[in-house]
């Protein structure tokens, strides 16, 4: 809800994002996915480690990045 960082978001894929946050999220997800794939061990196919890595990256970025949406709830006017 803070206005400090507003006005410097851009629209990518029909929603507003902050470029720096986007780069962080992409680096995290790509890093974990590729890292998981490369450092897979045991008999499990490396793809599973890669997918798990991608999901871990997604979860971390969801925690550290705030969505750029401003929600206003309106009561049902009846």
């Amino acid at each position: 809800m803070k206005e400090e960082n507003s006005e410097n978001y851009v629209e990518v894929w029909e929603d507003n994002v902050n470029i720096k946050d986007l780069l962080i999220a992409m680096a995290l997800c790509i890093g974990f996915a590729l890292g998981g794939y490369l450092f897979a061990f045991g008999d499990t196919p490396p793809l599973i480690f890669g997918l798990a890595g991608g999901v871990i990256g997604f979860i971390i970025s969801s925690i550290i990045i705030k969505p750029k949406r401003q929600l206003t709830m309106m009561e049902e006017g009846e």
Binding site: V12, N18, D21, M26, C29, I30
Partner: peptide
């Protein structure tokens, strides 16, 4: 809307694509 940042979604798909490209 409140908890899933758009950045993370784009990041996730970028991650999947890069990994599958490498594979």
């Amino acid at each position: 809307f409140k908890y899933i940042p758009h950045e993370a979604l784009i990041g996730l798909f970028a991650g999947l694509v890069v990994m599958l490209a490498f594979m």
